[in-house]
Design a protein around this nucleic acid. Structure first.
Lengths: 100, 100
DNA sequence: TTCACATATCGCTATTTATAGATATGTTTG
DNA sequence: CAAACATATCTATAAATAGCGATATGTGAA
């Protein structure tokens, strides 16, 4: 991990809602209702559930999640019309290594 | 560590210079010249050295370091007219635990 | 194909942050 | 005490970010 990437991750973690999302996604089954279509959380949680729980507008949350994916904090997977988000533990690990 | 504190730390790590300072302070003897008065780096590096290396104004760096200390990323120790800064590995560890 | 729904992007304003110069405070030394 | 120096704080402006509504795009269902 280089300084630039680490700083981009820092930017994502500089906002309470975004950091909270990272925390929620540690335990999807505990923090979100079950998906009706997808019967598991293997690929994480859909945007709508995250948006509702965060209580911010759809556009704001969509932008958050896009940026969090861009810097490598999240992995996005599409299933039909839904996008599912989960933590990218690989990048998180590299970030931690860089900071430590 | 709670969400608010973690986010404050995220804010400090959302700027390339501040993140860079955290990296420099991992190895003071490698990244800074020896102090003339204090003959060791036990309490870290003085503000002036950090300021010169970062290449930003004195007031800007002073503000950075103050905030980094406030959120627990750094420990500040005064010796005479100098302030020495070092990493607060305890808080860093808690932050990492919270994120992981 | 058209509709309905999920998500992404655009354009805008309000708020926050970056950064500097000026000034204040604290500390050592002559 | 006065001067010199290190650091902190204040004030101001430019730049970046937050967050929203409107709109566009993509996708499955009727």
């Amino acid at each position: 991990m280089d300084l630039k990437t680490a700083t981009e991750i820092g930017k994502c973690l500089s906002n309470e809602t975004r950091f909270q999302i990272m925390e929620w996604l540690k335990e999807p089954e505990k923090n979100f209702p079950p998906h009706e279509t997808l019967k598991h959380f293997n690929d994480g949680v859909c945007v709508t559930y995250i948006q509702e729980k965060a209580g911010l507008s759809q556009s704001t949350i969509s932008t958050y999640l896009t940026n969090m994916e861009k810097c490598g904090l999240l992995i996005s997977t599409r299933h039909g019309k839904w996008s599912y988000l989960k933590r990218n533990e690989n990048t998180i690990g590299k970030f931690i290594k860089f900071l430590k």
